[in-house]
Design a protein around this nucleic acid. Structure first.
Lengths: 230, 230
DNA sequence: GAGAATTTTTTGCAATTCTGAAGATTTCTT
DNA sequence: AAGAAATCTTCAGAATTGCAAAAAATTCTC
C-alpha cells in the first residue's frame, strides 16, 4: 500500500484464523511483506477472543477448523463487530460459498489462491471501511474520518489548519519535521519567506492540548522543527 | 434519476453493462427472479451515463466491452460515485483480477459462474452500504423503503433532496463527508463551482429536525463538510 | 397553464480562523 | 555571565467560511 505525502497511514492489522501451520506461516510472510501487521490463531475459540481483544482491521478465516464451523465463527463475529471477514478454503462448491456469504462473510477465496489476489481483496475491504482508522500516540487519539482529536476521553477541538498540522506530525511519531517540510505539506508552496505561522499554530495546538490535560506531546527541536512524542 | 417522493422503493436496482446479449438476457432473468430491478446497457459509454442518470444500487460490469476497457469504466465510475461494482468476465488470471480490484472494483467473478453465487455476492455488497430496513441514529429513525424520517415517534417531513442528503450522511454515522463528496453523491452532475446548495439544504434539514425536537444531529466541520452524530 | 412546492442562487452578516509583526523569553555559545 | 540566535507569546487586522433570509428559477400538480 503506497502512501501519499501528508496522509496518516498506520499499518493495518490482520487476524488470521487457520489451523494449518504451513499455510498460516506462508500467509504471515506474504501479508507482512505487503505491510500489514499479522496475528495468528489456530482455533476458532482463540480466534474469536483475539478478534474481540485485539480489534483487528480484518479477519482471514479458514474453513475446516477443529473446534467451530466457519459459519458459526462468522455469525458470532458479526454479532459484536463489523470487522470484514474473508473466507479462505479448499472447498469450492457454490452452496458453501453462498452459505458463508450469507452468514456475514465479505469475500470468499478458494485454495489454491494467489497471494496477490488475496492482498487485493483485503485492500478492497479496507478501502470500503473508514478511510483512516484511529491512530493513537500515547494518550492522544486522532480519528481522521471524524476529524476529531482526543486526549484520553475528552475531545480537543482544533481548527482545520491545526488539525492538519497535527496529523502531519503524527505521520511518523518521533520523526522531526523541519519547518520547511511542514510549510510545504500543510500549507502548500506559497508562504512568505520569513513567516512564523508554523510556530504560532504549534503554540495554539499545545495550548489546546494543555487545556485537555496534555503536556509535552509536541517536542521542539531547536534549529530544525518539531516532532510529536514517539 | 431518483424516485419521486412517496414511491415505493424497496427493490434494489442493478445496472448490467454487458455486450453479449445471451448473457445479459440470462442475467436479467436470474436477477429479476431474485427480486432486483434490472437495467441493461451494451456499451461502456452508455453504461456510464446510465449509472449517472439512474443512480443504481450496484453495477455488474463485463470485461471486454467494445468501446472502453473495464478498468477505465471502473475508474470513471469511482470518480463520481461510491456505487459498488462487481466484475464479470471470462478472464481468470490473477493480474487482471488484481488490476480490476485496484481500479475500484469491489468483487470479481470468473465465468462460468453460478448465479446463486453472483446473487450472494451482490447481497454482500448491498448489505454493507444500505440499510435494508429502518436504521436508527440516536433518537432519529430513517425508513428508506417508506422514505420517512422520525424523531422519536413524530415524523419529520423532508423533501426528496433533503432525504437523500440525510441518508447519505447516515451511511457512516460519525464520518465527515466533504462538500465535494456530498455534491458528487447526492447531486451527481456537476454543480457550479461556488454553490452553497449543500449548506442551504443542511440548514433546512436542521430546521425541520428542530421543529420535531431534534438538536445537534448534524455536526459542522469547518473547512470540510458535515457529519451526523455517531 | 396557473399555482404550489422544491431547488438553486444571491446577498449580507456573523463568527471563526489565519497571518504577520513586535516584544518577551528561552536556549545556546563563548 | 553576556551576547546572539532561536523560539514563544500576544494581538489586531485580514481573509475565509458558515449561516440565514429572501429572491429567482425550476419542477411538479392539478
Amino acid at each position: 500500500m503506497t502512501n501519499k505525502a501528508g496522509a496518516v497511514m498506520d499499518k493495518k492489522h490482520i487476524l488470521i484464523i487457520e489451523d494449518d501451520l504451513d499455510i498460516s506461516r506462508l500467509l504471515r510472510l506474504e501479508l507482512e511483506e505487503a505491510d500489514f501487521v499479522v496475528t495468528h490463531c489456530d482455533t476458532g475459540m482463540r480466534g474469536l477472543s483475539a478478534a474481540r481483544e485485539e480489534n483487528p482491521d480484518l479477519v482471514v478465516l479458514d474453513l475446516g477448523l477443529p473446534d467451530l464451523s466457519g459459519a458459526e465463527i462468522a455469525r458470532r463475529l458479526r454479532k459484536t463487530t463489523e470487522i470484514p471477514i474473508i473466507i479462505l478454503t479448499a472447498k469450492d462448491d457454490v452452496s458453501t460459498k453462498v452459505e458463508m456469504l450469507n452468514s456475514g462473510a465479505d469475500d470468499y477465496l478458494a485454495k489454491p489462491f494467489h497471494s496477490d489476489e488475496l492482498i487485493a481483496r483485503i485492500n478492497v475491504q479496507l478501502r470500503r471501511r473508514s478511510f483512516g482508522s484511529t491512530q493513537s500516540v500515547g494518550p492522544m487519539t486522532i480519528d481522521p474520518t471524524r476529524r476529531q482529536v482526543f486526549w484520553d476521553e475528552s475531545e480537543v477541538k482544533l481548527s482545520p489548519r491545526e488539525f492538519e498540522l497535527l496529523v502531519y506530525l503524527c505521520n511518523q511519531p518521533g520523526r522531526v519535521y523541519s519547518r520547511e517540510d511542514i510549510e510545504k505539506n500543510v500549507w502548500g508552496d506559497e508562504l512568505p519567506p520569513s513567516s512564523n505561522v508554523v510556530d504560532v499554530h504549534i503554540a495554539n495546538i499545545r495550548g489546546k492540548l494543555r487545556d485537555a490535560g496534555g503536556y509535552g506531546m509536541i517536542r521542539t527541536v531547536r534549529g530544525i522543527g518539531y516532532a510529536v512524542k514517539g
